[in-house]
Design a protein around this nucleic acid. Sequence first.
DNA 1: CTTTAGCACTCCTCGCACCCGAGTGCTAAC
DNA 2: GTTAGCACTCGGGTGCGAGGAGTGCTAAAG
Lengths: 355, 355
Amino acid sequence: MLSSLCKHEMPVPELSERAQYLLKALTERYIRDGQPVGSRTLAREAGLKLSPATIRNVIADLEELGLVTSPHTSAGRVPTVQGYRLFVDTLLSVQPLEHALLDELELNLGAEADSRELVETASSLLSDVTRLAGLVTIPRREHASLQRVEFLPLSEHKILAILVISDTEVQNCILNMDRAYSAAELQQFSTFLNEQFAGKEIHAVRNTLVSELRETRENLNRMMATAMDMADRVLGEAEQGSDYVLAGQANLMEFNELCNVTTLRHLFEAFNEKRQILNLLDQCVESEGVQIFIGEESGYQMLDECSLVTAPYTVDGQVLGVLGVIGPTRMAYERVIPIVDATARILSAALNPHD
Amino acid sequence: MLSSLCKHEMPVPELSERAQYLLKALTERYIRDGQPVGSRTLAREAGLKLSPATIRNVIADLEELGLVTSPHTSAGRVPTVQGYRLFVDTLLSVQPLEHALLDELELNLGAEADSRELVETASSLLSDVTRLAGLVTIPRREHASLQRVEFLPLSEHKILAILVISDTEVQNCILNMDRAYSAAELQQFSTFLNEQFAGKEIHAVRNTLVSELRETRENLNRMMATAMDMADRVLGEAEQGSDYVLAGQANLMEFNELCNVTTLRHLFEAFNEKRQILNLLDQCVESEGVQIFIGEESGYQMLDECSLVTAPYTVDGQVLGVLGVIGPTRMAYERVIPIVDATARILSAALNPHD
DNA sequence: CTTTAGCACTCCTCGCACCCGAGTGCTAAC
DNA sequence: GTTAGCACTCGGGTGCGAGGAGTGCTAAAG
């Protein structure tokens, strides 16, 4: 399940049992109440029978290694990005999800709705349950397979193309043509295309079309050529439909560290400027299992103080998209991770054709 | 153009020429730099050759009338909601739009895109140009007329219904049926419906269907009954499609008075919780011309420190939806109003069928 | 009667000094 | 290796005072 948590490998320095334990305690404490945690607190917190002074020595080592840092001379310590990484990768003990929560997720994602709706529901659910901002990419059509194509005449030079991708997903687009086509002609086109390509992957269909068109245009009769040309345009539109859904941004404002208005501003600008976040999400598509980006690791400074926890969701083993949450670095990973994981699996199940 | 600015009538007390002028100057000044403005400043600002003392007397009257208020004893004055209202209704001199801006709007809303896209572009444009949050309701279909209907079989019990509303707008939905239908049957249904209802308003079609079904069910043959039933379900879906698009929320954070994180929080929660804002927008639909809600006037306390400037956009005289911006009460009305007005008109033009 | 000047008063803002507490690092003793 | 003790640092809160902006009132001037 957490197969790829350790993506950002680094020479993990050998840490004593104790040091690890203290880092874990420190991080958990910091996640809990957001205050830099000092040696005295830590001594009390961790069940260890050690004096603050001893703790200080260990913590000093951790600081040396860049795992924790203090905001100013006489404050407690706070995990650094590396600290979080280590914490998440090796120290974290994820809680199993309560049944109640699982049931809620399954209930809400159980209804037969179209896939777009399901995906949006998933985003809202994530945001509700985690109190962070939930986000989900909309299924990419590249890997979906084409069930059939239909063309309807709209007006003189406009044709409505309908792409049936699955029982629950349909897409249409309007084509502006250079001449008028009769209903009969259009019927021929779609019959032809359906015979040739029904059931194939959209991406493959498109490639075939392009190459066939280029290579053997002269060998095709006029009708086929037109049909393919039209299909090509439809598929082109269909492919660039990748986008994402975001819910519950307001939750982000509950966190002190994001209360800085300029930080929030950058964040919301990033949301409006979808490209950047999409890029990030794209990176998560390949890997399976939960992925975590901590702070600057994302490579986008606008997400500096945020972490991203994502998991891909699939149909028939094909990754359709990614879902997850975005929140302050200091989020309750042990809780968020299983939630994201479960949601991804339940959404996958809901999207799988079963009737 | 500004036909309905004076919606919130109130017994406007007779104000001397001078008092009006000073209220205008004060409001403009306050809008410019957000600081309470004092008598000295006002004396300099307003070209009048009056001493601060005189100004103070006049301002004291304005305060008496509830048009301005001072945040604390020895600060300058700030317009109240009533003050803004008066300002907007009777004192404001709207700037004509520069040609460059008009051109930009027309250029961006000129492309042939489908209506949904146009509407989203309008929202982004508004937000870009005004540096406020732009928002636009998605065209309501109730008043749109139906060009035709098509049904396609998807699988055993699923049918794809396609609603052609105009050359540029198509909507589809998937119907789960209780038995299988052949392509031929579906063809019959759509032919029947198209003959009966093509060109009628969706709303009207639906009403007709419902009443005919109820009254004369026994007189209809089975085929027609089924066809009507199906159409009813499609139209029902089509009608509830009202929603809105929002762009540029990040802009809101540029304003000091909204930097209060809790205020922002309420605002963003309102955006997520679409209903409230939709209600507000609905109120704007009936009236023609630019509408302005100032602060608490909206009736939603979450918009307390915000104003809403909206204008409906139309096709063939039918109001399709509303567009506008939301921003702090202290916004540059004289600039925003013509922009919203122009955008509404340009969007209307772009949506009007012309080919 | 309107306008103005003068003046006392209020209240916000800012800088300053201050102290307190939390926490550290170091050293020396256990 | 662990602990106690101690000096030191720094941030945050508090209290005080000066400065400034602005008001309201009154009385005199136009």
